[in-house]
Design a protein around this nucleic acid. Sequence first.
DNA 1: TTACTCGGCAG
DNA 2: CTGCCGAGTAA
Length: 267
Amino acid sequence: MEKRRLECPALPAGWKKEEVIRKSGLSAGKSDVYYYSPNGKKFRSKPQLARYLGNSVDLNSFDFRTGKMMPSKLQKNKQRLRNDPLNQNKSKPDLNTTLPIRQTASIFKQPVTKITNHPSNKVKSDPQRVIEQPRQLFWEKRLEGLSASDVTEQVLKPMELPKGLQGVGPRNNEETLLAAIASALHTSSAPITGQLSAAVEKNPSVWLNTFQPLCKAFLVTDEDIRKQEDKVQNVRRRLEEALMADILARDSEASQNSDIYMDSRDD
DNA sequence: TTACTCGGCAG
DNA sequence: CTGCCGAGTAA
């Protein structure tokens, strides 16, 4: 049978949808739906698609079979705790480092009300390309309750921030401050300065610069940098020592084994 | 090996 | 019933 990969209107440009009819077996006549990303990767389920797209896209109302957004699909909130014992041994740790962004700016085309032109109406034409996604105020708050864990899923103690860093915004606390700064450092290559505007303390909702973390402006001195360099050097030295010790331990273990081997040959 | 299929289970 | 994904088979 001939296969057709069709451009999918609900998905960003380049995505294709394919429906394959089963032609034999008990399930003959049923069909399977697949999607292909612009780079050609095949997707055969909604969870798989969601995993790939990360937090950047809301698929709650996306109907995989038809390929359309179905706003009627109201789903109950599945609030799952990170350390749910039922989940603990099942799923691999989530390695997705995509940060949550405003979902109303989704790259998926949501149904919209069409506004036609009118003499008294000036309709803005769409810019060729949206350069920057709008950012939600205080979006870092959504990172609350997350924590790093090691390979055994043992939760790690959060790192300590230097004294003198002060958060801004509603209900600000150490946890959000740390998340905000860490996020800023890994999402932006621009310098992280904190909120430079003093007005932000009076009214954060108005004056917040969303490209800077939720903290007051801070200053990093040469002294700070030197201290940090010392720290890194120290840690590297300890790592080197540990690796050396490990190699030596393996060596002596290996020679012991060969001793045993020699003994048994003497028998 | 990868790609394509259908079975079969969970919800 | 449908959606998801394992795993067998084909290329």
